[in-house]
């Protein structure tokens, strides 16, 4: 499967990833309309995290052993067998936050704009390249096949 890999050595913490993620997950997909007019307001599913001068973009890691899927009490989370993407079915989510409790990456958030439900990266599976990757001005996010990754 494909995953997004953050390169903290070149991330400048500009948060473009957050903005374009929110736009991509908005109704209008228009940056002005999305932030000014849409209700509920779209929230980003990627976050720039920072520790002093070091920053990088963090989104769902689409884990091989996804704790959120295993712990989800309603069945709203599942891992797609073909793409490997961990998918959150908003319709089935009751906002119990069990997924957030077990995600050791802190990559799941609460979306309370409309109905209290979990919010996480869907890897922009409808696009060739996820919005955060294609809009990162410094190429601090790259899309790679996970067999390109060295395992610990």
């Amino acid at each position: 499967m494909k995953i997004i890999y953050p390169k903290e050595e070149v991330c400048i913490g500009c948060r473009y990833c957050e903005i374009y993620c929110a736009v991509e997950h908005s109704k209008s997909k228009d940056i002005i309309k999305a932030f000014k007019l849409e209700n509920p307001r779209p929230i980003p599913k990627v976050r720039m995290v920072q520790n002093g001068p070091v920053s990088f973009a963090l989104q769902c890691r689409h884990c091989e052993e996804p704790d959120c899927v295993y712990a989800c009490i309603t069945g709203a989370m599942h891992k797609d067998k073909e793409t490997g993407v961990v998918i959150h079915d908003a319709k089935r989510c009751i906002g119990c936050w069990t997924c957030m409790m077990v995600c050791t990456k802190g990559a799941i958030e609460r979306d309370e704009e409309m109905r209290k439900i979990a919010s996480k990266c869907d890897l922009c599976i409808h696009l060739d390249v996820p919005a955060c990757v294609s809009h990162c001005p410094n190429e601090a996010l790259v899309l790679i096949e996970d067999n390109q990754i060295k395992k610990p």
């Binding site: 990456k105 790259v142 990754i149 060295k150």
Partner: peptide
Amino acid sequence: RIRDVALA
């Protein structure tokens, strides 16, 4: 946590 040690 990021899942990867380094790009191969």
